[in-house]
Design a protein around this nucleic acid. Structure first.
Length: 432
RNA sequence: GGAGAGUUGGCAGAGUGGUAAUGCACCGGACUCGAAAUCCGGCGAACCCGUGUAGAGCGGGCGCGCAGGUUCAAAUCCUGUACUCUCCUCCA
């Protein structure tokens, strides 16, 4: 949610900045018209209310003295009707204003590359050496299926498209990866959290999924409850409506959670493999910071995500998304994309965003600055990392010609000493 | 799923139709070499509108979980609803 007062003061700035995200200037004008109308109506109704309050007070005094106040009551009665009429108009106007304003995205930072499409993203750095294969590298879904550790067919039978079973060492690998990630983040100062996986509509609104993206989530139990599309929702809403003691800032939290997404509109994309599932695991990082610290914190958070890939020794690059490609709430987003040999390209594994005060204004999450004034916190979120995609990358980058997969060194302890997944050790019950 | 109780300022806690007690905490001052104690004064989240250089000051609105209703007037009455707690049932 943007600050309407600031928008009122400098409409041209907002039109220019939001234009880079595809917001039409007429939308801003409409918001400002409704804002003006709101203030006009408020002045009228508040003047009447002041009048009524004064009259009521006099009636009260008269009654105390035992005097007759019938005439004054009759006169004041009319005021009540007028007020009710005006208040209805105010409410209707407020609703329109709020709906419009809640659908306008965050203001992009000046350093964000301007483009309405994903083309034009800035590459910040490229890390790691891309492995040269002396055989044709296989896709992870073929590797996983051949080893028996990924079973897409039976998931399709039991659940449907875009679901998967992990088995044996595959399931263990997934668990090893997210335990490794959580341990690394704890070393970096994050507090581990195990949040609820179902949240209410107010939380979805707070982080900005609602009202715009109702259709991309799974709702349960009628309208209100939603399976989380990301742990960002319960982590960021954790302090919703609160004033955070200043000495606690910055707050770093991390959580593993499943993420549920309907992937409406993604039909036909990434139909094979682990890349785009209705349910996947993700380790999420969330920070609450003071306003002046959030840009530094974004860089640190991105580094926390990169740290995982460095230790896993998987090549990646970091890009800054364009104005048109960023998520609704972000003022700037760094994506980490890891290397998928079989696809011969980088694929997104993390998205780290500074949402500035955009979510905090929706959630009313504040702190007191050095003058004792209330300020909105800045919120950041980033994947640290998407677990399924990381597993996919391990399978592809660490595959051997015979179809086996070597376990990255840092994960061996998490795999209880297993150094390689082979057809023989992959799924015990298949080898009886 | 059934029954009951509760929801008031940072915290505790009064208030059953006349416009939110009191205590603690907090802020300012006095006393003191200083601090504690004590005394005096102030302050009741945030928010919204007007005025204004101002997130100062001043004026107004709103404000007792939330949303409606009755009334000149609602924390108080009525209706609905959310959440919390207790007991029963159930369950990992």
């Amino acid at each position: 949610m943007l600050d309407i007062k600031k928008m009122r003061q400098d409409p041209d700035f907002y039109k220019k900045k939001l234009g880079t995200r595809g917001v039409k200037p007429e939308e801003i004008d409409e918001v400002l018209d409704l804002d003006k109308k709101r203030r006009d109506l408020l002045q009228k109704t508040e003047a009447l209310k002041a009048q009524r309050n004064e009259a009521s007070e006099k009636i009260g005094e008269a009654k105390k003295k035992g005097e007759n106040a019938d005439e004054a009551i009759a006169q004041t009665r009319k005021l009540g009707a007028d007020i009710k009429e005006l208040d209805k108009k105010v409410d209707a106007n407020d609703e329109k204003l709020h709906d419009l304003l809640a659908g306008i995205p965050n203001i992009p930072h000046d350093d964000v590359p301007v483009s309405l499409t994903e083309e034009g993203a800035t590459e910040l750095r490229k890390v790691g050496t891309i492995r040269k294969f002396d055989f044709e590298p296989k896709h992870h879904w073929d590797i996983g299926t051949n080893l028996g550790i990924l079973d897409f067919d039976r998931a399709h039978k039991v659940s449907g498209a875009r679901f998967v079973y992990y088995l044996g060492l595959g399931a263990q690998l997934e668990r090893a990866v997210y335990n490794f990630m959580l341990d690394e983040h704890m070393k970096d100062g994050y507090t581990e959290v195990l949040p609820p996986y179902i949240v209410n509509a107010a939380s979805m609104y707070g982080t900005g999924q609602y009202p715009k993206f109702r259709d991309s989530v799974y709702r349960v139990n009628g309208e209100d409850m939603t399976l989380i599309p990301t742990a960002e929702v319960p982590l960021t809403n954790y302090l919703r409506g609160e004033v955070i003691p200043t000495e606690e800032l910055p707050v770093y939290v991390t959580a593993l959670s499943p993420c549920f997404r309907s992937e409406a509109g993604a039909a036909g994309r990434d139909t094979r493999g682990l890349i785009r599932m209705h349910q996947f695991n993700k380790v999420e990082m969330v920070k609450y910071t003071k306003a002046e610290d959030s840009w530094d914190e974004l860089e640190k958070m991105t580094a926390n995500g990169e740290n995982i890939l460095k230790k896993l020794n998987i090549p990646y690059h970091v890009i800054t998304l364009t104005t048109g490609d960023m998520s609704f709430t972000a003022a700037m987003t760094h994506d980490i994309e890891l290397w998928m040999p079989a696809q011969n390209k980088y694929r997104e594994v993390s998205s780290c965003s500074n949402c500035t005060d955009f979510q905090a204004r929706r959630m009313h999450t504040q702190y007191r600055d050095e003058n004792g004034n209330l300020q909105y916190v800045h919120t950041l979120n980033g994947s640290g990392l998407a677990v399924g995609r990381t597993v996919a990358a391990i399978l592809e980058n660490y595959q051997n010609e015979d179809g086996s997969v070597t376990i990255p060194n840092v994960l061996v302890p998490y795999m209880h000493g297993v150094t390689k997944i082979t057809k023989e050790n992959a799924v015990p019950f298949r080898n009886k």
